[in-house]
Structures are given as C-alpha cells and as structure tokens.
Simulated assay, not measured.
Amino acid sequence: MKIRLIYYLLIFCLSLVIGVGCATQETSNPVAPEENSEIALKDHRLTGNETWDPEKTYIVHGTLEIPQDITLNIPPGTTVKFGRDALLTVRGILKIGTPLDQDRVTQLVHLTSNNVRPTSDDWTGILFDHTHDLESFIRGAVLEHATIALDIKTTSPTVAECTLRQNETAITLDGSDALIQHNDILDNHIGIRTIGRQTRPKIEKNNITKNETGIFCENVQSIIRNNNLNANIFALRLNVKFDLVVTNNWWGNSDTDKIANVIVDAADPVLNIKQIGTVYYEPFANTRIADAGFPYPTLLIDLEE
C-alpha cells in the first residue's frame, strides 16, 4: 500500500514539473523587435532593380545613383527625404508614383527636404542624365525644396498629376520631348525652363502660377498650350532670338496690354541685354481653364496632416 502511494505521489510531482516547465517555455519566447521605419542611404548605387516599401521613409544623403539598365520603383505612399545637396542621378529607369495605365492617383509620393526648416534649394534634385529611355515617369508626386526638382536631359519621361512647389526651378527640359501635363507648378523661382531647339516638349494643361517666372523659354519648338499662367511676376520669358507661338493659355485676364506686361520678349528692350524674338500668344483663353492642373487637391490635404 505504501509503495503504491509513493508511486502515485512521484507521478503527481513529475506531472507538476513537466507542466511548469512547459508553461515557462511558452511565456519566455522573445518578442520580435519592430523593423526600423526609416532607411538611410548615403552615396548609394543600385546594383539591381529595386521597389521601395511605401511603409518606410527613405533618407538620402550624398548621391543616389540608378545605373544604366537598372530600375528604381518608388510606389504611391512613399516618403523620400533628401539631405543637404543630395542628388538622385538617373542613368537607368525611374518610376515614381502611380503607373500611367492606372485610372487615377489615390496616394502621393512625397519627395522633400530632410531639413526641419526647409528652403528652396536644400537638396539638388533629380537628374535624368542623358538616359534616352522612354519608360520613366513621375505621376502623383509632390516635389519641393530642391535646386532643380526635375533636371531632364535628353530623355522624355512623363510628368503628370504632380505638385512642384518651393523649388529654385521646378523643371528643366534640356533636349527633351517630355510630356508635362496636369501639374500644379507654383511658388518656385522658375516654374519650367526649356533649353535646346531640336525637341518638342509638350507643356499642356498645367497650373503654372505664383512663380517669379512661370516659363523661361530657350526652345521655341516647345508646345505650350491650355495652361493657366496667371499670378506670376513674369508668366513667360523668351531668351532666344527666334519667335515663339503659344496659344490657348489663360494669362489671368483678357486685356492684351496686361498680358503683354507679363511676357518678356522683343517688345521689352529695357529688360533684355541681347536680341530676342517675339511671343505670339493669340488666340488666348478668356477664362481660367477648369481642367488644368493637379486634379486631386484632397490628397495634398491628407499629405500635410
């Protein structure tokens, strides 16, 4: 009897030990630490195609380079902050925001300064460095506080449904056939600068407003039409000896004298130190072009909250 009792007691004690041991093992599992929400890149050169995570904030210092035959995809919802004088150089393919074959933009990409008190030239900008590709695009993005936000040389990306603000120059088109369409380009020193004569960039249905100079034109082959060009100090400044034809734009009013006052061409010898051509701006829109500019203003409100 005593032997049987001792036997039962041993079994009971053993079961308690096993139970406690199991319970301890279950509660002692370590909790995986949360992944860092920021990714810092300093003088980084891509070695393969990359798609960034929209849940993270990317902070670029120095130069970020996309080599030839490499693609960087920055999807909607991504924030990229650039340190002082940081530069994104594109020699491959850059895809920012919502693909062109999708119906509408639902989230923005934010490309901005990493400075807590940003100015209009905090970071250098995005340089398309003679890539000659036709696949790059920027759609549904806010670009701000750069020296030249988009410096596009001899390539022709589409820039659509974006806001470019508070830059020294928003867009420079040098030997480019780029399509610049449905953007808000405001509060820059220069909105768009065109250079070269062998290409025909299309600048259509944009709000180019509240800039010191809306368009600084050295490429008279540029197609500039159906834009709102109001509230700039100078809406358009011609800087070559050839004439320029720009039609069906809204200049802020229908008074030809007032329109002429915001255009710098051969009629303004005091403002010019060299021979330049004449801007022919008629016919012009008599009212603001309603469907020009960035079509998703509520997304900007969401971005700034």
Rank of each mutant, 00 (worst) to 15 (best):
Y8F: 08
I11R: 00
I18V: 13
A23K: 14
E26D: 11
T27E: 10
S28K: 15
N29F: 11
E35S: 14
D43I: 08
L46M: 13
T47W: 04
T47M: 10
W52C: 04
E55G: 14
I59V: 13
V60F: 13
Q68Y: 11
I70T: 15
K81H: 01
D85K: 08
A86G: 08
A86V: 10
I93F: 08
R104H: 04
V109D: 03
L111I: 15
S113W: 09
T119V: 09
S120E: 05
D122F: 02
W123Q: 03
T124N: 11
H132A: 14
H132D: 13
P157M: 06
A160G: 08
E168F: 10
T169V: 13
A170D: 07
A170F: 06
I171D: 01
I180K: 07
D184I: 05
N188C: 09
I190L: 11
R193A: 13
G196I: 03
P201V: 10
I203F: 04
K205G: 02
K210Y: 14
E212S: 10
T213V: 15
T213S: 03
G214A: 06
C217W: 00
C217R: 04
N219R: 05
N219Y: 03
N219H: 05
V220L: 08
N230F: 12
F234L: 07
L236E: 00
N239A: 14
V240E: 01
K241V: 13
L244C: 06
V245F: 04
T247P: 01
N249A: 02
W250I: 05
K258T: 07
A267W: 04
P269L: 12
N272G: 04
N272D: 11
K274F: 06
K274G: 00
Q275P: 02
Y281R: 02
A285L: 09
R288E: 15
I289D: 02
D291G: 07
F294W: 09
P297L: 06
L299N: 07
E305K: 14
